[in-house]
Simulated assay, not measured.
Amino acid sequence: MKQLLHTLLQSLATLAFCAGSVTAFAADKVPVMASFSILGDLVRVVGADRVTVITLVGPGGDAHVFEPKPADAKNLLQSKLLITNGLGFEPWVQKLVKSSGYKGPVIVASQGVKVRSMLAAKGNGTETDPHGWQDPTNVVIYARNIASALGKLDPAGAAAYQANSEAYVKELQALDAEAMAKIAAIPADKRKVITSHDAFGYFAAHYGIKFLAPQGGSTEVEPSAKQVAELIKQIQKERIKAVFVENMSNPKLLTQLSKDAGVTVGPELYVDALSKAGGPADSYLKLMRHNVTQLVVGMKQN
């Protein structure tokens, strides 16, 4: 009995140690790090049970203002692959790679996407719009790039990764057709939306919606009083009722703007990050369906 109790206590101690460990990689799976939560979801779908994924910027996190911590560098060193969005979305990645000493491959999931431009965060000229995942036809490219990268890293699983990505492509195509039908039912002159920061460029172009944002492309830069005043005039002139704030933005600005313009802020949208597990947008597919549903409801009120 004493021996049995001793063995049990040893097992519990081991479990407690593992639970408190910095890294969460499983020993029998390919360790992959993704830069942010949406990308992490895509890697999990394509990699399935052959990979373990850790994301740097988790659900609800803001990649625009993210600062890597020592634990992130330690986890990166234990990874065999780092997958990023690219397009300037993660300006801190190269510094993290260098400081951590990571020597493995770094894959840009957006490689091959037709890049759009957006107004620069500080209002001077234009810059690359990094939010490529807002168009599900771009996510088809993301999924296939991820499958290719995983296949090179783990040749024994290459066929499985390709099959997983192609199955997911069918889900993305079904999502896109569903979204297109719902938005097409809204008259073109009503397809106008106010959001807190300019992250819907790809979505807008693909679905034929006009988005206006007081904060520009980055959550780091506050709009001027003049920009806000001009937007209020436009809201009132065009009678825009579809006003939304994103899950990783400070709602104070848009709440004040909507109050001054006499409109009500709609439900939260998910743009640069997933919701936490169990939330309305804890996967990319759920995120897109949630956003489309809320945007359609809002635009019908215009």
Rank of each mutant, 00 (worst) to 15 (best):
I107A: 04
K103D: 07
V115F: 01
V93T: 05
G88S: 09
P105C: 01
T128G: 14
P91C: 04
L96T: 06
K95L: 05
W133S: 12
L119F: 14
A121V: 07
P130E: 10
T137H: 15
P130R: 11
I83G: 03
K122E: 11
T128F: 13
G112A: 03
P130G: 11
K103G: 08
E127Q: 11
G132M: 08
K114N: 10
S99F: 02
K122C: 04
Q94N: 14
V93L: 02
G112V: 01
T126K: 15
A109G: 11
A120T: 09
V106R: 02
D135Y: 10
S99Q: 12
K103H: 12
V97A: 05
L81R: 06
P91N: 01
D129C: 05
G88V: 10
P136Q: 08
H131K: 03
F89T: 04
G125S: 11
D129Y: 07
V93K: 01
P105T: 00
P105E: 01
K122D: 13
W92F: 11
L96F: 04
M118T: 13
W92P: 03
P105S: 05
A109D: 11
V93R: 05
E90W: 08
E127K: 13
Q111R: 14
P91A: 03
D135N: 10
Q111N: 11
R116Y: 13
E127D: 14
T137S: 15
Y102S: 01
H131T: 08
T84Q: 11
P136W: 03
S99M: 00
G86L: 07
G132F: 07
G123S: 08
P130A: 09
Q111L: 06
T126R: 15
V139P: 04
G125T: 09
V93M: 04
F89S: 09
I107L: 14
W133A: 12
T126Q: 15
S117K: 15
W133K: 11
N124M: 14
S99P: 02
T84W: 10
V106D: 06
L119W: 13
S99G: 00
S99V: 03
R116N: 12
K122T: 06
L96M: 04
L119R: 13
Q94S: 14
W92K: 02
I83V: 07
S100M: 04
G132A: 15
W92M: 07
G101D: 11
N85Q: 12
V106Q: 01
I107Q: 06
K103F: 15
E127H: 12
W92Q: 06
F89M: 14
L96I: 02
W92G: 05
N138F: 10
N85A: 12
V115K: 06
A109Q: 08
A121K: 09
P130T: 11
V139D: 05
Q94Y: 11
G86W: 05
L87C: 08
R116D: 08
G112T: 01
G125D: 10
Q94M: 13
N85V: 09
G88I: 09
W133L: 08
E90Y: 05
N138I: 02
N85C: 13
W133R: 09
W92L: 09
